[in-house]
Design a protein around this nucleic acid. Structure first.
Lengths: 339, 339
DNA sequence: GTGAAAGCGCTAACAC
DNA sequence: GTGTTAGCGCTTTCAC
């Protein structure tokens, strides 16, 4: 392995000179600079970042923790993170917890041992998990999810608004009896979206029938199962269903169709999050778009700022704005045509 | 920051004893072990992996390079990699080239400087790129793609067979006039799948009409555009279309429908790769499944083996087997019902 | 402007 | 079995 020492010897300069050339940390005469650069080139020398990290006490790497990378919500987010990381000469260590608490702790530990400069966490909903993060003493930013009444270092989306947008759109079209199919209430985004649904109904002076509120999780199966539940339990079916995620929406549409109900002709459905696939779903899903790439990009921006500034960066929360996406499942096009 | 020295002092033992306890690299009396462990616990000490790496000349991290993490082919693959990595106490540094050659080189350089123990590369199709990898001197395994006539360290799928399975299935149902919509011929998988199509046609004694062979890239737009091309140029339309990827298949189906043709009633289409969405596509796509999770898992297994064994692990190629997935777009269910 | 030397936190060889 | 010490490759004072 070629080291700085080899370069110094071959270029006939002192070690410190080589370091100065590489880091441009001090003036070195043009001639010497050139000589050193040439030898570096010649020996194909690459500085050893491990040694440098040990000395500088910073690794230029960020740990990113998500629950499930195969959930299409995350890849674009991670892309955003990696894009700004590489642009700042940082690397991303990826940690996929698979929703396993023990594995989460293992990763946290590893991140500490590997001396990452910061953590981007997209999996924190419980105060208990946050405590574990705090224990590490590492700088961090929470992304997308957060424990209730958490007030700092956060980049996410206005989840309240996502549901309100959906309800507003439905209300505008004259739908009154609207059902809500929620996600896992352990997860902050699910709680907020549900609250947003109630807000939206209120704003539009629409009555919420408790019979039409279902809890579940962010899965296709959950949407499907709750449709069956609804069909079995509810006397008067809703005109519309708000899903708390597109994947739940997929399950709803499938469940409805398998039960002989048409979407949007018989029941209308709205998703939430604009899954990249929704556009091409059996019936193109109307939904609310989440700027996940920006979430990734901005959270990494924020974290790197915290890492670079010596003095504390003021705590802040960056809340992005969702936007309505109208396709076919909400019956908008049909209504239009009827007019 | 707490260091081993602090532990040694507080536990009133020698530095080497602490090291021995942590690494279980030498016998330490039970009492001392306990005393040391207690102090470690007390001070919440975590070993500094950077210092250890510098000394041991190994970092327990693997660099993973893919072209585009938001392409659904990769997340499950990466999940497989990460699952076996963490199980072996390794971490994954994720590099997303976004198909940018310059960025690829930047990442390669960074991986060398960060002293990763090995590379998992899912983006290498050109000999030229492979050369850059070889230059680093790092151990590596290619995944999914490889340059032509490359004969070592590879984990992928039998792409020839993917197309053959598709053609066989079509032939069995009596389709004779079959079109092929290929991907970017710069990419090995696209070349192999195309070759597999010709093989399959041959085996089934079916004639290939050169007019029905289209090149493109692995995108929805490519499939869509080529359908329009076909409709404009070809006098006698095909009975069936083989796509070289599901996403191309999506574009084909959309193009056909937008042109007033029904799938599978008028033209039948087969995808290739079993995109997680295909099951829920406008018309559920018949396709060929690729074991991407296993590809990730086995490639990491292989690489770690290479990293751990001091003596060379014999070069080998692990070629996984695809399997047919019959849904609606290939008209199988319809044919069945007619009988 | 350039060179010598200390030390980041750890491992491992060696002496006790 | 336990303790001392050199050194991994680098950065950074501090003399010259």
């Amino acid at each position: 392995m070629t080291t700085m020492k080899d370069i110094a010897k071959k270029a006939n300069v002192a070690l410190a000179t080589v370091s100065a050339v590489i880091n441009q940390s001090a003036y070195v005469s043009p001639e010497l600079t050139k000589r050193v650069m040439q030898v570096i080139e010649e020996l194909n020398y690459k500085p050893n970042a491990v040694a440098r990290s040990l000395k500088k006490k910073s690794t230029n790497t960020i740990g990113v923790i998500v629950t499930d990378i195969s959930n299409p919500y995350y890849p674009t987010m991670i892309k955003g993170m990696d894009d700004v990381a590489i642009h700042n000469n940082f690397n991303v260590i990826l940690c996929n917890t698979s929703n396993d608490d023990k594995r989460f702790l293992t990763y946290l530990n590893l991140m500490v041992e590997k001396q990452v400069d910061g953590l981007l966490l997209a999996n924190i909903s419980k105060t208990e998990d946050l405590k574990e993060v705090e224990k590490t003493g590492l700088k961090y930013v929470l992304v997308n999810r957060k424990p209730s009444s958490y007030g700092k270092n956060f980049v996410g989306i206005n989840n309240l608004l996502t549901s309100e947008l959906a309800v507003n759109h439905l209300a505008e079209q004259g739908y009154k009896r609207i059902a809500y199919f929620g996600g896992d209430s352990e997860i902050s985004t699910a709680r907020e979206r549900k609250a947003g649904f109630f807000n939206g109904m209120n704003e539009n002076r629409l009555e919420v029938d408790p019979e039409l509120i279902f809890d579940g999780d962010y899965s296709l199966e959950s949407g499907y199962a709750n449709v069956i539940n609804m069909l079995n339990q509810v006397k008067e079916l809703p005109e519309a269903i708000c899903a708390s995620s597109d994947v739940i929406g997929f399950g709803i549409v499938k469940g409805l169709r398998d039960s002989g109900l048409r979407v949007p002709e018989d029941i209308v459905v709205m998703g939430n999050d604009n899954n990249p696939f929704s556009e091409n779903f059996i019936v193109p899903l109307s939904t609310v778009d989440h700027p996940t790439y920006d979430m990734g990009r901005l959270s990494m921006d924020y974290l790197l700022q915290m890492v670079n500034e010596k003095d504390e960066v003021a705590n802040k929360q960056i809340i992005l704005t969702p936007s309505l996406v109208v396709r076919e499942s909400c019956g908008f096009t049909r209504k239009k045509l009827e007019k």
